[in-house]
């Protein structure tokens, strides 16, 4: 058993090394093509090695392990197969919205991990619960926000939705979601806790929608880059909850690289990030004149 645990842990170390090295190679035009291949091998390796975990599952899960492994393989085939087919078949001009869609899926996966940690039977301490809630909030916002960004770029939602007092409404929704998150932690494993967690995740999804709706389609690449950083951060936080250092490293590297990338992309448009995110609330003309 102890050998298996070392194998799983070391596979994460090797994989995170390959992923970061691959990303480094992608940041230069000369080596970029080989960079994604390097990162791809790292990912394949760590996903294959994660199946070694089935020999060390908790006692409660032992009777279900055959079903769980079957479900895992089915989910990998369905999710991977659909995304691979979609990614290969869409037109080259539709790439940005595909990035948004796949990024949203990553945020959703992080949110799912957070839901299980928050509602599952395993007992966890308050510190870990707070990290779980933070990761769940960021991941859910990334999921719903990326889906809105995808819809806008795909031409399914042509006009930004704006109304008076939108900024105040968004702030209220965000604060309410934070309160629900704290309540979900306070009521953890007590009656009403599950409902609080459910409402919290619904609120977090609503936050992502509210944040993205007023932003115009031309600004979407910057917004997608921001949600990319969000998902990275959520993955890093859930990695801490799951005690998986590989997730912590890969997630946080993407979190900081994505933030920097967002800043650089906004600068390329002669804008600041806050200008992209908050300037469109009914005062477009004023900021455009000032800028």
């Amino acid at each position: 058993m102890i050998v298996l645990a070392y194998c799983v842990a070391l596979s994460g170390l090797i994989a995170s090394g390959l992923l970061v090295y691959g990303l480094k190679r992608m940041s230069s035009p000369v080596t970029a093509v080989s960079g994604i291949v390097t990162a791809g091998w790292g990912m394949l390796f760590v996903v294959a090695a994660s199946f070694l975990q089935i020999f060390g599952v908790s006692d409660a899960a032992r009777p279900h392990i055959v079903v769980n492994v079957f479900l895992a393989i089915l989910a990998l085939v369905i999710g991977g197969g659909w995304a691979g087919w979609k990614g290969r078949s869409v037109a080259m001009t539709a790439m940005p919205q595909m990035v948004a869609l796949f990024n949203g899926m990553g945020g959703g996966a992080a949110a799912a991990v957070s839901v299980i940690a928050l509602t599952g039977p395993t007992d966890t301490g308050i510190g870990q619960l707070l990290v779980t809630v933070a990761g769940g909030l960021i991941g859910s916002m990334s999921l719903s926000g990326s889906l809105i960004a995808w819809a806008k770029l795909d031409g399914r939602m042509n006009r930004p939705l704006r109304f008076g007092g939108q900024r105040i409404v968004n702030a209220v929704v965000f604060v309410l979601t934070l309160v629900l998150g704290v309540l979900a932690v306070a009521q953890y494993h007590q009656p009403g806790g599950g409902l609080m967690a459910l409402l919290f995740f619904a609120g977090a999804l609503l936050c992502g929608i509210c944040m993205t709706l007023p932003i115009g389609g031309a600004d979407m690449p910057v917004v997608i880059s921001l949600y990319n950083a969000f998902t990275g951060l959520a993955v890093g936080l859930e990695g801490y909850v799951m005690a998986e250092p590989a997730l912590m490293i890969a997630g946080m590297v993407v979190g900081s690289a994505g933030t920097l990338l967002t800043v650089m992309m906004a600068r390329g448009m002669n804008r600041s990030i806050s200008n992209v995110l908050f300037s469109n609330f009914g005062e477009v003309a004023a900021t455009a004149a000032a800028g």
Partner: peptide, 26 residues
């Protein structure tokens, strides 16, 4: 390289699937 790198880092945070697999196995 901004857009390909955004996509590349999008791939890197896909490692979350390992966490999801761990949750599903348990």
């Amino acid at each position: 390289l901004h857009t390909p790198l955004m996509s590349g880092s999008n791939f890197v945070h896909g490692i979350v699937v390992v966490g999801a697999l761990g949750a599903l196995f348990n």
